[in-house]
Simulated scan of single mutants.
Amino acid sequence: MTAVDTQAQVQELRRQLQSLLEAATANERKLDRFDALERRLMAVESMEELVNLLLVECRADFGLDAAELWLLDPDGELSRALPSLPMAHAPRLLENHLPLKDLFGAARTARLIGPGHGEALLAQAFGDGTPVRSGALLPLIRQGLLIGSLHFGANDAERYDAASGTKFLDRLSTIAAIAIESMLNRERLRRAGMTDGLTGVHNRRYFDHRSLIEFSQAVRHRYPLACLFLDIDHFKAINDGHGHPVGDEVLRQVGGLIQRSLRTGDLAARYGGEEFVVLLPRTDLAGAREVAERIRLTVQDAPFITPEGGTVSATLSAGLAMLPAGAVSFAELLSAADRALYEAKRAGRNRTIADTAGEAA
């Protein structure tokens, strides 16, 4: 072997060593970024913060061209937990497992998709209009159940090579799934403390807290505040004639009808028994009367489905009051709405009476 050959071999070995060192340095930097991301995932305080971290900050930190988060939400828990998140940053909420099965099949392992294969899956995972040429599809699994998927996409066709390892990505998907489950459990506990377990609307405890805030805001900024008391007519007769399970089902469905009749920012709560209370901020008398009548007519026309599959009918009476000028406590508004409800009951039920107007709607 000549000196020239030896020198060439040394140079090649140096080149290979330099390449290995660069790869090790790159992997170390990658590991540091993943470790930092994992710590941040475990420290998030809300679903909004978690989603923003995965879809916005993660995309910037790792130089991604696209990021998608799909989450299974058959009962609407997440849609309630993310009411104010901008739609551009929101996850895709799935009603069933079918889209996830299309991505992962039975394997439920991370999938790296590069050029030449899987283009249809990339279009499905990121949308047809997203210019993604390679991607990583990460299943989110908790306690053996597939709860969603996290998708990273790049315009670089070589970014996610199907032959590459997925160790870091597998760990990230595990941590992300744990964080999502933790946030869901926290949201369940939070809602349990302020939600009526039967009807799904807010409970009396939450209403008492929120009503004082709405009262002080209305007084400070001098905007109208309306209060409705709603009571199911002859509810005892429903319980006596059909049984308490049917009465509970009527209560549950009435609570849902009330909720669907309100705007974002309005407040409905079960006040006690068969009585509900509604607060309508920034709503004048005519607007509040319209809401009360919409709720009343919706209940009147609804066939309430019993646990056995039959139907019963129900009506409700509504008392309406506006926050009086110069009011010094929320109790004044509540008492006025309660008086109006009593008048609606005395006048024959299934009607709206406004305390300030003194006449039936």
Rank of each mutant, 00 (worst) to 15 (best):
A177C: 11
A177M: 10
I178F: 12
A179F: 12
I180V: 15
I180Q: 09
E181R: 09
M183C: 06
N185V: 09
R186T: 14
E187H: 15
R188V: 07
R190T: 11
R190S: 13
G193S: 15
G193M: 14
M194D: 02
M194P: 01
T195S: 09
D196W: 06
D196S: 06
G197Q: 15
L198V: 06
L198C: 08
R204I: 02
R204Q: 12
R205S: 11
R205D: 04
Y206S: 03
Y206V: 05
F207P: 04
F207S: 03
F207L: 15
R210H: 10
S211M: 14
L212S: 14
L212R: 15
L212H: 13
E214I: 04
F215E: 00
S216I: 07
S216Q: 15
S216L: 11
V219E: 06
H221F: 14
H221I: 01
R222N: 10
Y223L: 13
P224E: 05
A226G: 15
L228I: 07
F229N: 09
F229T: 06
L230E: 01
D231S: 05
D231G: 03
D231P: 04
I232S: 02
D233Y: 08
D233I: 01
D233K: 07
D233S: 03
F235I: 12
F235Q: 11
F235W: 09
K236I: 05
A237S: 13
A237H: 13
I238F: 02
I238R: 02
N239I: 02
N239G: 04
D240G: 08
G241P: 05
G241I: 01
H242M: 03
H244V: 00
V246I: 10
G247I: 08
D248E: 05
D248A: 04
D248L: 06
V250C: 05
V250K: 08
L251E: 01
R252D: 00
Q253K: 08
Q253M: 05
Q253H: 03
G255F: 11
G256T: 00
L257H: 04
L257S: 02
I258E: 06
Q259L: 12
Q259S: 12
R260N: 09
R260W: 03
R260F: 02
L262A: 04
R263L: 00
T264D: 13
G265Y: 08
D266M: 11
D266V: 10
L267K: 03
A268Q: 05
